[in-house]
Design a protein around this nucleic acid. Sequence first.
DNA 1: GTCTATAGGCAGATAGAC
DNA 2: GTCTATCTGCCTATAGAC
Lengths: 193, 193
Amino acid sequence: MTRRSDKRMRLILAANRLIHRKGYERTSIAEIAKEAAVPPGNVYYYFKTKEELVDAMIARRNAFISAWLSDIDKDGDPELKLTRFVDEFEKTSKSRAEHGCPVGGLCHDANRIGGTFADQAGAAFRTLLEWLARQFVELGDDQERAKANALHLFSVLEGATLFAHTFREPGIVEAESARLKAWLVSLATSQQP
Amino acid sequence: MTRRSDKRMRLILAANRLIHRKGYERTSIAEIAKEAAVPPGNVYYYFKTKEELVDAMIARRNAFISAWLSDIDKDGDPELKLTRFVDEFEKTSKSRAEHGCPVGGLCHDANRIGGTFADQAGAAFRTLLEWLARQFVELGDDQERAKANALHLFSVLEGATLFAHTFREPGIVEAESARLKAWLVSLATSQQP
DNA sequence: GTCTATAGGCAGATAGAC
DNA sequence: GTCTATCTGCCTATAGAC
């Protein structure tokens, strides 16, 4: 086998790009193959179905997210870690305005498709929310409040992304990020507002 | 003509229901016809294209939203009006957990399709945001701050809807609604925090 | 004016050639 | 083990029958 994993990975990466931009439904196997420079139709040698390809793509994304969180975790200070989390959204504001949130968009699509798909896609959100809640606990929240604050922070960012995408206005994500960071500062200073 | 407008409206209503549940891509003309009890294929007598049908559906939705805002406007108090706005999300939390936000979902789909579609769908958000900003002005905000607060309030609700949908958890919308209402009270009491 | 039969195209998937 | 030619089915849209 001449580097089977190479083409396989190229297909996963192409699917990742295209599905972020065009969504699951409007991204065809043929397009993914073309983008990956793999002969069309040949995709089914590497993946039995389109769904299996996307499953592999989601798994890779989720691993990426876990690795990212581990990287942030090297900082000990929860306030700083939360700030870095929000910063990531600010930094990707242009991409978000143009194509929406990769995770949120996929969850949206997955919810429509149903099956095991939605759980796979939602796992990324679950991981991120649990991580966020842990940071709020470290800041002094009890479990319940930490969960609520995690959900609030993330809701703001995802909602802002939706509006930024709808109006093609990266500034919306940036404005809400700034607001959240100010809130984090006030939280950390005054041990709960 | 034996009540041309009757079948036409039935098709619009069927499209509205189905597209909310399954999204634009996964809702076929044949399904819409079936749901509306109109002979399949006959749809094209009433609408030249699928896009035209959806345009009509969006126009109806947008009119509905404007009427709803006019109704709320009968209350003079901006704080009460904003509370009623948030209440609407709380009341529809179950539907939101099951099928997502009808407006947000459509904007999402429309962004992928492109063309004149995205503007049509986004118009509802624009109308709602402008209305929200007006209420914040009445509460004492300057224009810029009112716009920011409108966007923030709505972002929270749309983000919460996304998570509620992803996790099939209406409580998420309810929790964020409660949080927003507490915030509105604190805003109105203390003329800006 | 209303509806049906069908065209035309593209999607996902497969069988089998190289 | 790798790739291509092709099948089947569904979707949008139309031409023309009633």
